[in-house]
Amino acid sequence: MQNPYIPIPVEVIKIVTEVDTKDIKTFRFAFLKKEDEEAFRYLPGQFAELSIFGRGESPIGIASSPTQPGYLEFTVQKAGVVTSTLHEMEVGAVMGVRGPLGNSWPIDFLAGKNIVIVGGGFAFTTLRSLLNYMIDEKNRSRFGKITVIYGARNPGLLIYKDELDAWAKRDDLSLNVTVDKGDADWKGREGFVPTVCREVAPSSGNAVTVICGPPIMIRFTLPVFFELGFSKENIITSLEMRMKCGIGKCGRCNVGEKYVCKDGPVFSLAELDKLTKEY
């Protein structure tokens, strides 16, 4: 049996600084071994442990889509020991990735439905994976109308700016980017995500909302979707926790008998309601 704690060796091949504050970067990794690349089968919404030898591991959502073969991307905010070391790394550095871990956005459940993607700030990473997966030409016909609502505090904090421009040009999805407060150059929408959701008012008919963002955004956005007629089964989110082992062994991330790393991180609101209130 393969030891699940052994990381897969990868090389940093590209680093993009996403935001003006420079503390969020997207790292692109290539597998050192071809057989590892073929074995790494994942779906949007899954995560992996980024492993820096001698420093530790950090659980990060996979930001690239399985429809983009040959590499993996992770968007990481500089925060603790591992991510600070990662931010100092340069192209060519060798490190480890352990995964893919957790469940994914429920692709089979989403198929055939209209999809509303709601993202806030830098939580857009696995949503970007999902969006790129759905708009891939092989998959686009499997999904209905796609509406994206994405907000950040200010224009400098929007991530994936090049892709936002490319998505805005497509006629098979409706992209609504908003910032809490614009600056002199900002020509787009201003307003908080819940307000924009109410303005855009996606229909709840045969539709599923996939929402990921800061708790405060989710708290005020959920009532809007209830008003629009979305049921708790059709609102899906992804939890964040200190997932140390990633395989349901260490007992850090469990809420009751459910392990966020193994049974999640993706849950519907109906499933979250069933979890114990204390953990």
């Binding site: 925060a79 991510t83 926790m241 200190r242 007992g251 850090r252 469990n254 204390e278 953990y279």
Partner: peptide, 20 residues
């Protein structure tokens, strides 16, 4: 054991940790 990088701790006191 459960303290997150952000400073948030889902099991902040002995009560929650013994319960777990």
């Amino acid at each position: 054991f459960t303290k997150e990088t952000s400073g948030h701790n889902p099991r902040p006191s002995q009560k929650e940790r013994w319960r777990q």
